[in-house]
Design a protein around this nucleic acid. Structure first.
Lengths: 294, 294
DNA sequence: GTTACCCATAGACATGGTCTATATCTCCTG
DNA sequence: CAGGAGATATAGACCATGTCTATGGGTAAC
């Protein structure tokens, strides 16, 4: 009575019962007939019960064998489904990809990659969770997202950071300030104009504030807004000069509804990073997506 | 991509996921922690996917691991149920016993054993299929019954016969023929009385016919009936002398409503045999029942 | 009678699962 | 901050056991 069989035996039993032949079962399992015979015997001895009638045509389940089969069949089917499902997850025929980040980064930066990814792997469900950088980091640590897309720099020993893309922030203005189009302004000159900045707690805002401070100036916005779309819109309507990421206004720059205001100092580039948990395995979907971005 | 894992790995995975700890899983499976660690790693490599996050407190399922677990959990539960069920069948806490035979043998011979068996193993369902000897043999060969209870002799190479009990056939009469009570009749004398026999195709009928034939007589019944009950009833009512199995009329003999008619020749005993298929494994229930009878 | 197809058995062999020993990491505690 | 407790990972040795080949026996069909 050593209950607790090697579960491998059930696989053999399943095929023997299903095919009604130890020989056929052996072929299905890429084994030899004696191996199957031996396996069935082991099961029978462990249960102390005969599972098959042996006859010249093959084997047939006994009453007890049928009882066992009724359980094992379901069990084996589930395992087969599990293996298929795992293969699907691996091949990205299925599964999900959960990304966290800010709306503007999603819209202007992540979207094309997502489209590409979705085209390649339409079976993978996409979940976008928007939030601020600290929120995204929390999501990551709670396992609610697979990766985060945020502005650099991030310093957190638990996080793996992949700097993936460089963005260039700049000042832009609309037709109202057309006279600045071919000028190169000093900081002092710039500050004569009304400035529109992103709200106080954003990384871009902190960066530009610090930069001006280093040059001995203090930048105080006329207008503060909470979304990149508003930064763009206000600049277009001539309410002031907006500090935005150049890549996010490429359309407006092309069509001429906005132009870049040149300065006599270089503005620091900002980096976008992909955040993942360090020492945590990535899902196939996340791995593939990151590969796509790089 | 060598899909087709050793199913034993799923058992390990199940316990690791269930306990949230490789160490605990190892204890549950009577393995060491490195063995479990190794097993999980094999699964992960075969799927090309991480199944667990490892942390200092133990392990936690990844998204993919959860998917796998949702299948494997059911599968393992089914296997556990299967093993419990098989143990129950072995212990005769469950299962069924299917016996074929004639109604009279059931009533007069098998019943006490069935009662005893049922008392010992109330979980085993009993199925009685009545039929003639050839029918019972057919049932056996078709696997519709586990064993048959019939009169001997049976000659069939496919059948295993266990002679289990000896019955003595005899002639009995009722009050109407009270004058024979202390007589010892010759066959000749007996044949002066009306004889009641079982129907033509029964083994008892053939036996007695042949016996008389060997002594140079021909026995021709006044009345032929199709059941033992009628044989008894007719004799009691004085319609003639019935040839019955003594053990089947023990009650009537005791209470005096019938008495045995002695003859000057010995009547051959008849044997009841338990029939099973030769070279076919017996269910636990059948094995136990046969043991009980012997 | 003979062929062909089953399953059972025996015994040799080698794969691979399991072990011990050790490393590494994290968390918690004094 | 050092050190202990407890978690998993790794390396390497060993031997159990699963698998094979070879063979036997039985039955059905031609």
């Amino acid at each position: 009575m050593s209950m607790g069989n090697n579960y491998e035996l059930y696989k053999v039993f399943y095929w023997a019962a299903k095919t009604g032949s130890l020989t056929q079962a052996a072929k299905a399992l890429y084994l030899t007939q004696p191996s199957v015979s031996h396996a069935i015997k082991q099961l029978e001895e462990s249960f102390g019960v005969s599972l098959f009638y042996r006859n010249s045509k093959g084997v047939e389940l006994t009453q007890e064998g049928m009882v066992l089969y009724s359980y094992i069949e379901q069990s084996q089917i589930l395992i087969t489904l599990a293996e298929e499902k795992m293969a699907a997850l691996k091949n990205l025929d299925s599964g999900e990809l959960r990304i966290g980040g800010s709306d503007s980064l999603f819209k202007h930066y992540v979207l094309p990659y997502l489209e590409q990814f979705h085209k390649l792997h339409p079976g993978v469900k996409l979940h976008l969770n928007h939030g601020t950088t600290p929120e995204v980091i929390t999501f990551l640590k709670e396992g609610r997202i697979d990766l985060g897309v945020v502005r650099m720099p991030i310093v957190d020993p638990q996080l793996q950071v992949t700097e993936s893309f460089q963005l260039q922030d700049c000042f832009v203005a609309g037709a109202r300030y057309a006279e600045l189009k071919n000028e190169v302004l000093t900081l002092d000159a710039l500050l004569q104009y009304p400035i529109i900045l992103f709200s106080r707690n954003s990384r871009a805002r902190m960066t530009i504030t610090e930069l001006f401070h280093n040059y001995g100036y203090s930048i105080k916005p006329e207008i503060e807004v909470g979304s990149v779309d508003l930064l763009i819109e206000f600049a277009r309507r001539g309410l002031g000069i907006s500090y935005v990421t150049r890549e996010f206004v490429s359309k407006e720059l092309e069509e001429g509804s906005l132009f870049e205001v040149s300065l006599d100092i270089p503005l620091p580039p900002s980096h976008v990073g992909l955040l993942t948990m360090r020492n945590m395995p990535l899902s196939s979907a996340a791995k593939t997506f990151i590969g796509l971005v790089k």
